[in-house]
Simulated assay, not measured.
Amino acid sequence: MAPLNEDQLENIRNERKIQIMRAALKVFAANGFKLTKISLIAKEAGISHGLVYHYFKSKEEVLHESLEWAMELNETKKYLNELSEMAISPLEKIHNFTKFALSSSKYESSDIFRIIQHLEHTEDVPSHILEFTKNVGMMYVEFFIPIFIEGQEAGEIIQENPEELVGLFLTIISGVMADDPDYWHENMDHKISIFLRMITTR
């Protein structure tokens, strides 16, 4: 058997690192930051404890790089760009995003939301990790505030502080994604319409 060349070795290293990060997201989402140990991540990834340290210096580094990797892969950014270009009403944009978020929550998206919720209630989390998760949240807030204001001007959204309405809307969606979204998958459009009545005028 011929020895592997440098490109093949690099591909193997990248695949192994992704294997670890995917496992880490699951473990951090299930256990939170404080209760997660490198040994749990290694077990989930099906590798040795020591091999994790070949790719990451610490638990904190695993978490930060895993979140960055997941957000880069996450389809949400792409979808938000597409949604902003759609010639539909503000309420339809909100409805479509809600459906997208709850439909895609089987993958890394739900782990990201669960981890962020854990971190919001955890002490001694490194500041750069908190800053990253804060920026993730602000991405959604900054996208939706203009849509909510447009919806208010069109008479679709109730006349309350738009920033508070967006915060409430995103908090509830985060809670659903962090829990068990299976309930929403049957008759999803109808259930989302009921859910959105908390912010709509009809």
Rank of each mutant, 00 (worst) to 15 (best):
residue 1 M to Y: 11
residue 3 P to C: 13
residue 5 N to D: 15
residue 5 N to V: 10
residue 7 D to M: 15
residue 7 D to K: 15
residue 12 I to P: 04
residue 14 N to Q: 12
residue 14 N to Y: 07
residue 15 E to W: 04
residue 16 R to S: 10
residue 18 I to W: 07
residue 18 I to G: 06
residue 18 I to F: 12
residue 18 I to T: 15
residue 20 I to N: 03
residue 21 M to L: 14
residue 23 A to I: 02
residue 23 A to H: 03
residue 25 L to W: 02
residue 25 L to E: 02
residue 25 L to Q: 03
residue 26 K to L: 09
residue 28 F to K: 03
residue 28 F to N: 06
residue 29 A to W: 03
residue 31 N to H: 14
residue 31 N to L: 15
residue 31 N to Q: 15
residue 35 L to E: 15
residue 37 K to I: 06
residue 38 I to D: 02
residue 39 S to T: 09
residue 40 L to A: 13
residue 40 L to M: 15
residue 42 A to N: 01
residue 42 A to H: 00
residue 42 A to Q: 00
residue 43 K to S: 03
residue 43 K to I: 00
residue 45 A to H: 01
residue 46 G to S: 00
residue 47 I to V: 05
residue 48 S to M: 02
residue 49 H to K: 08
residue 51 L to H: 07
residue 51 L to V: 05
residue 52 V to K: 02
residue 54 H to K: 08
residue 55 Y to D: 07
residue 56 F to R: 03
residue 57 K to I: 05
residue 58 S to M: 13
residue 58 S to Q: 10
residue 58 S to G: 10
residue 60 E to F: 10
residue 61 E to K: 11
residue 62 V to G: 04
residue 62 V to Q: 03
residue 64 H to D: 08
residue 64 H to I: 13
residue 65 E to G: 03
residue 65 E to W: 04
residue 66 S to K: 00
residue 66 S to I: 01
residue 67 L to K: 00
residue 67 L to W: 01
residue 67 L to H: 02
residue 68 E to L: 14
residue 68 E to S: 12
residue 68 E to V: 14
residue 69 W to R: 08
residue 70 A to Q: 06
residue 70 A to S: 12
residue 73 L to A: 07
residue 73 L to T: 08
residue 74 N to A: 03
residue 77 K to W: 05
residue 77 K to R: 10
residue 78 K to L: 11
residue 78 K to D: 09
residue 79 Y to G: 05
residue 79 Y to T: 11
residue 80 L to A: 06
residue 81 N to H: 10
residue 84 S to W: 10
residue 84 S to E: 14
residue 84 S to R: 13
residue 84 S to V: 11
residue 86 M to W: 12
residue 87 A to G: 13
residue 88 I to M: 10
residue 89 S to R: 12
residue 89 S to W: 10
residue 92 E to Q: 11
residue 93 K to H: 11
residue 93 K to Y: 08
residue 94 I to G: 06
residue 95 H to V: 11
residue 96 N to P: 06
residue 97 F to L: 09
residue 97 F to P: 05
residue 98 T to W: 08
residue 102 L to P: 05
residue 103 S to C: 08
residue 104 S to L: 04
residue 105 S to Y: 04
residue 105 S to V: 05
residue 106 K to G: 05
residue 107 Y to W: 06
residue 109 S to F: 05
residue 112 I to W: 00
residue 112 I to A: 00
residue 112 I to S: 00
residue 112 I to P: 00
